[in-house]
Amino acid sequence: MIHFNDVTKIYNSNVKAIENMNFTVEEGELVIMLGPSGCGKTTLLRMVNQLESITKGDIMLNGKSVWHSNKIEMRRNIGYVIQSNGLFPNMNIEDNAMIVPNLLGWDRKKMRDRFNMLMELVGLNPDEYRKRYPHELSGGQQQRVGVARALAADPPVMLMDEPFGALDPIIRTHLQEEFLQIQKELKKTILFVSHDIDEAVKMADKIALLKGGKMMQYAEPARMLNKPANSFVAEFVGQDRVLKSMSLYTVRDLANALTLKPVIESPDSQNINENLSLRVAISKILNQEADQLIVENDNGTRKGSITLDLIEQFLHREIKESV
């Protein structure tokens, strides 16, 4: 758990970078801090592991105040991933990934097992990469190693500063999805900085939207998209916020909330899996690929069909409900 208690940061005795920040990242939650550049999101993140000092207030990490923690010891208990991956060019991949366990004095066998396990987790072959050097890897591979390094000593808390920001869109999407899978398994408490609203909507349990060092809104993605707290939030999340919010739901959510229409056999229909995101489903209809989408579960059993007006009905309901 990360708890921000009235955190303030003042530069040069008068420039307020962060003003009275109060919020909590609950255990096992992934919170994404969003905002325009200069809003203080990275500063706030770096205040957690004390790379930036705190002027006033307190940050509690699993109940312990950062003011009373040993900086070095505390940082070794926090996974830290940065945009440029920050791998050490002079060390091979295994030494890079195992730097924190090494500092903590783990034995060789334990480190080797941990390395193998983590590399499998991030989707790289441990033996193939063990002795290679960072510059021999692609950007995506380097960032996977960066994630493995952050997870090495199994820290309860992770800080991620635009971890996928420097990657091309295809690799970025891959890594986002893989990381979500990893997070489902490991349930770390994660504070994550991003400037990409789509990334935040896709990955976050909650989004913290900052502007000028102040919190604009702290809410679940659906709530932020459907009920923006003020005009700045509404503008930041975009005019297409309803469309964005659809990627938060699957066809199954719709099927559970509303009664599906009966299947009418017609050439203009297409079969879709119920795990498909609603955003993709509506795109299919809008793309004129089909007028009617037939929903199937994993066994291939047909559950009914959806049409444009059914989706519309569902959205009305969700937007109203999230008030």
């Binding site: 790379l51 940082r75 070794r76 830290y80 940065i82 440029s84 920050g86 050490f88 002079n90 500092l103």
Partner: peptide, 27 residues
């Protein structure tokens, strides 16, 4: 030495001396 590398070394929990010996001098 790349500031990002130094930042990573700090963020990971290397002491100033460890950062010098393990990261800065070799690079």
């Amino acid at each position: 030495v790349d500031p990002d590398i130094r930042d990573a070394a700090n963020g990971i929990g290397l002491t100033t001396f460890q950062r010098l010996i393990k990261v800065e001098l070799p690079n």
